[in-house]
């Protein structure tokens, strides 16, 4: 069974309990020196900050208000990071969790460039990539992810991916923008946005349905075209030479 989480943006109050929970459970707290110790507003994910609550403005003038969008690894159905990783250090397990094997990571940072969500970060001390683990060490023991367990408003709902997708569909039918059902082949963390907001305002990339695999196929096609061009260039040059050479012989 694959796991999933539904992020119901409407219910998030921006308390950042999930951020703290993630640090506490994963022990990432001590090493993050770049930020204020109380984690007020780390600007972005890092190799030590695996989840961050983003504050997004909505409306204008008197109607101005904030809503809050938690970011972390989406555990994509078809992860670009896994496709990019040349050594298989990053991999997607049967339960849908995308993890890395530090022993195999060579530190090329291709996954960093490939992930549409800017999730993996290279840790110069550990010499490996680090990111949200979906709390595999919890969920595989029957517990919820630490961030989900910490959320005081049930803005994060943990379950099987099928169940989460079904719930997301329901919200969509009621007119909520939903992110993660199709984008880039779909994700395991699916977002339900308040009506009249757009996922792209919260920094989620507008991805078509093109999957990483399909994009790689295009890359291979380009490579094949380059091969043909190289061969052709040589062949044409060679062809040009032939008559001249024969003429020399005849004379």
């Amino acid at each position: 069974m694959e796991y999933g989480v539904l992020v119901v943006v409407d219910r998030c109050i921006g308390c950042r309990a999930c951020q703290v929970a993630c640090h506490v459970w994963n022990g990432t707290e001590a090493e993050s020196t770049e930020f204020s110790p109380d984690y007020t507003n780390p600007p972005d994910l890092t190799s030590n900050v695996w989840t961050v609550v983003r504050f997004v403005e909505m409306g204008e003038g008197d109607g101005l208000r904030w809503y809050f969008v938690k970011r972390q690894c989406m555990h994509c159905v078809e992860p670009a990071c896994v496709a990019a990783c040349p050594t298989g250090a990053l991999h997607k397990d049967k339960d849908g969790i995308v993890l890395w094997d530090s022993k195999k990571c060579i530190g090329c940072r291709y996954c960093v460039e490939a992930c549409p969500y800017g999730v993996p970060h290279f840790d110069p001390l550990d010499k490996t990539i680090r990111k949200c683990t979906f709390c595999a060490d919890r969920v595989r023991e029957g517990l919820e992810p630490a961030c989900v367990a910490a959320c005081p408003t049930d803005a994060l709902i943990f379950g099987s991916l099928d169940e989460i997708r079904a719930r997301a569909e329901e919200y969509r039918a009621k007119g909520h923008p939903v992110y993660g059902l199709e984008e880039g082949g779909g994700t395991s963390w699916i977002y339900v946005f308040p009506k009249e907001t757009a996922p792209s305002d919260a920094g989620l990339p507008r991805l078509g349905p093109e999957t990483p695999r399909e994009r790689i196929d295009k890359g291979l096609l380009a490579l094949a075209m380059a091969a043909v061009a190289g061969l052709a260039a040589w062949g044409v040059s060679r062809g040009k030479a032939a008559p001249a050479a024969q003429e020399v012989k005849v004379r």
Binding site: A84, P86, T87, K104, G107, P124
Partner: peptide
């Protein structure tokens, strides 16, 4: 590379789907 001493993996145990591989 972060760990150049492990670069051999690209050649010996590559994940062939990867463009880098």
């Amino acid at each position: 590379l972060g760990r150049p001493e492990h670069a051999f993996r690209i050649m010996l145990a590559p994940h062939m789907e990867s463009p880098m591989a």
